[in-house]
Design a protein around this nucleic acid. Structure first.
Lengths: 337, 337
DNA sequence: GCGTACAACTTATGCGCAAAAGTAACCGCC
DNA sequence: GGCGGTTACTTTTGCGCATAAGTTGTACGC
C-alpha cells in the first residue's frame, strides 16, 4: 500500500502537492506537475487509506443500513426475499455516489448506536424498526436518518420516512375485490400498527365507500412465531366459510394461507379468493399465480438511499415519501357476480 | 464524541493510562486508577474511533463480503432469497467476533480490489464469483480469502472453499428417484461448471451405479436471461414426454419449470416428477410441495465466516470444506413402480 | 523600482489512537 | 548502601491524510 508520503518522496515534491492533485484543486498546481503526479498515481495504482482520510476530515463516507432482526417463523427479517432486493437497491445507489455501505443486523438499538459512533457513520437507513426504536436512535444520533416503512407522526419529527402509499394500494385491491362481487372480505395481518394499520385504513375506506360495514371480527390475526403459526393458521382456516375473499398483508402470508387451505381441501380461488401484497417472486411462481398489490422494493431502497444522500449534501427533502403501488391481477380471485 | 485525550485530561492522567485500561493490560495500572477510569468511561459512554485505531494498528476489523452481480431473469444474484440468508449468517458470526461486515455487490473485480485496499479490509468472503475472478482477486489481495461455492482445483491453491457435498447430495436424490421406479431422468441446469458440474457428476454416478447409461441428450439447458427464459422453458416442456423425472439444480428452476409445465396442462407429479435442490422457502410453500435436496444456507455463511476468522487468528484450516445435505421428500415425485 | 498580487509551491500541525521508550519511586537483598 | 527488579505511571512517536499557514519567485501596474 503506497502512501502519499512515499509518492511525494519519489517524485521529489511535497505531500500537499500530491494531495492537491488527488483532490483536483484547480489553480493550486501547475499543469506540468499535475500531469506528472497523475501519471505516477496511475502507475503505482494509488488507493487512499480511508481510515486516515476519515480521521483527518471527520467523515467516514459510510452509510449504515440497520435491519432489525425479527423472531418469527422465518426466524429473521433477513430471510425474507424482500430484504435482499432492498439491500441491493441501497448498495447500488450508495456505491455510485462514492459512499460505502455497512450492514448491521440487530434488534438492539444500543448496539447499533455503538456501532454507528464507532465508525462515525455519516448517515443511517433504518429498516424493520419499530417507531420507538427509530426515535430512540434519532435522539442520540445527530446525523441524517431515513427510515423505511416506519410510520407515525411522532417519528416524522425525527426522521424522514420512505414508504408506500399503503392505504391507496390496499384501497385499490379491496375495490377490485368488491368489483368481482365480494362483500365478505377478511383482512389478515399479524398486528395493527405501522404499515399494517395504514393498509387496514385503506381496507376500511374501500368498504365504507362501497357501503359495506366494517366488522372487527373480519380482522384475522396470524401469529407468525414458529410455535404458534400452525395453530393460528388452523383457526383461520376453520373460519374460511365466513368469507368469500381474504386480503393478506403480504404475499408470504397469502401463499402460506393458500397452502394451509389447500392442505385442508379448500380450493383457491374456487371456494375462496386470496390476495397478497408485495408482488414478490413467490407471487409470480406460485400456482395459482397470486393476485396481489405490486410494490417496487428496489425503488424503495434506491429512494431511501437517494434521500439520505441528498440530506448529506445539505439539500432539503420531504420528510415523508410515499411510493406508488399498482394491482397485479393473476389467478387467485374468482368473479362471483 | 469524547476522545481518550479528553478523558485523560479530565481525569488528570495520561492517555496511555486510559488506553491501557481500555485494553485491559493487566499489571500496568493500579486497581485504583483502573476503577476510576472504568467508571468514567461508562459515565461518558466512550466509544473508540475505529478509523484512528485502524490507522494506528494497520488493521481494519472489517471483513468484506463481495457478491458478484449476475444478470439473468431475476436480474441480480442479490434477489435470490438464498442470498439474504447467507448474508445473515456471515454478519452474525462476524459481529459476534468483534468484526464488521462491509457488503459489496459488483461484477467488477477491479472495483472490488480498489474497495478492499481503500478500507484495508482484513479478510474477504467471495460469493457467486467465477473461479477466474476469485483467482484474479487472490493474486492481488494478500490476506485470507474464503470462497463460497467456487470450485476448482486451481482455485483451491489460492483460497479456501466452503461449499456443499454437491455430488453426494445429487447422488442421493437420483438414487431416490430410481428407487421410485424412474429410469428416464433429465438433468436441468444452466451450465456445466462449478457447482453444477459437481451435481452432474453425482447424477452420472448414481445412474452408473444403477446400471443406467448416461445420455448427453438428457442434459436440459435452461437459459436464464430474461429474453431467453421463456423460449428455453418451452423447448424443455416440449421434451417432457421423453422423461419420467427431471432433476433441477435449484428450487427456483424446479418451481419455474413446474409452473411452465402446469401452464401447459402437464401435471406434476402425476405425469412427470420434478425435484429441486436447496430446500428454500419456495420449496416449502409451493403446492405441490417440492421434493428437494436440503442445504443449510445459513450454516454455509457461518462456516465461511468462521473459517475466515480462524485464518485471521493464525489458525490452520482445511482448504476445502464440504457441508452435508439431506433429502427432503415432499410431493413432486410419483412412485411409478 | 517599489509594492502588490498571485501562482506554485513547502512546512507544520493535528485528527484519535496504540505502543515504544522513558521516568520515578519503592522494595528487597547480598 | 548500591543495584536489579518491579510497579505505576508519563512522554513521545507515528500511522496516512487534509489543510492552515508560510515561503518563494515573478509579473504587473503606476
Amino acid at each position: 500500500m503506497i502512501t502519499i508520503k512515499e509518492i511525494a518522496k519519489q517524485l521529489n515534491m511535497s505531500t500537499t502537492t500530491v494531495s492537491n492533485v488527488i483532490h483536483g484543486k484547480a489553480g493550486e498546481v501547475s499543469d506540468d506537475t499535475k500531469k506528472k503526479v497523475e501519471e505516477f498515481l496511475k502507475k503505482v495504482d494509488y488507493v487512499p487509506n480511508i481510515s486516515a482520510r476519515n480521521l483527518a476530515q471527520n467523515e467516514s463516507k459510510i452509510i449504515g443500513l440497520a435491519l432489525k432482526a425479527r423472531a418469527d417463523k422465518y426466524e429473521n427479517l433477513i430471510m425474507d426475499p424482500f430484504v435482499s432486493v432492498l439491500i441491493g437497491g441501497v448498495e447500488e445507489t450508495i456505491r455510485n455516489a462514492g459512499y460505502f455501505m455497512m450492514l448491521y443486523i440487530s434488534s438492539d438499538t444500543d448496539e447499533i448506536m455503538r456501532h454507528v459512533s464507532t465508525w462515525n457513520v455519516d448517515g443511517l437507513i433504518l429498516f424493520g424498526m419499530l417507531n420507538d426504536d427509530g426515535i430512540r436512535v434519532s435522539e442520540k444520533y445527530k446525523k441524517p436518518i431515513v427510515c423505511i416503512d416506519t410510520y407515525s407522526l411522532e417519528g416524522l419529527k425525527h426522521f424522514t420516512n420512505v414508504g408506500l402509499d399503503d392505504e391507496q394500494g390496499t384501497y385499490d385491491m379491496i375495490k377490485y375485490l368488491i368489483s368481482q362481487g365480494h362483500k365478505k372480505i377478511a383482512f389478515l395481518s399479524d398486528n395493527q400498527s405501522g404499515v399494517d394499520l395504514a393498509r387496514l385504513n385503506g381496507y376500511k375506506k374501500a368498504l365504507k365507500d362501497a357501503g359495506i360495514k366494517y366488522k372487527s371480527s373480519n380482522f384475522l390475526q396470524i401469529r407468525p412465531k414458529s410455535d404458534e403459526i400452525d395453530e393460528s393458521l388452523s383457526e383461520i382456516c376453520d373460519r374460511a366459510g365466513e368469507f368469500t375473499a381474504i386480503f393478506c398483508v403480504s404475499d408470504l402470508y397469502a401463499v402460506t394461507l393458500i397452502s394451509a387451505l389447500t392442505d385442508r381441501g379448500i380450493n383457491v380461488p374456487e371456494e375462496i379468493s386470496v390476495v397478497g401484497f408485495d408482488d414478490n417472486m413467490l407471487a409470480q411462481l406460485h400456482r395459482p399465480a397470486l393476485t396481489t398489490v405490486h410494490q417496487d422494493v428496489k425503488a424503495k431502497g434506491v429512494t431511501a438511499a437517494d434521500t439520505l444522500l441528498k440530506q448529506l449534501a445539505g439539500q432539503k427533502t420531504p420528510n415523508q415519501i410515499k411510493l406508488p403501488t399498482h394491482l397485479v391481477i393473476r389467478n387467485t380471485v374468482k368473479n362471483i357476480l
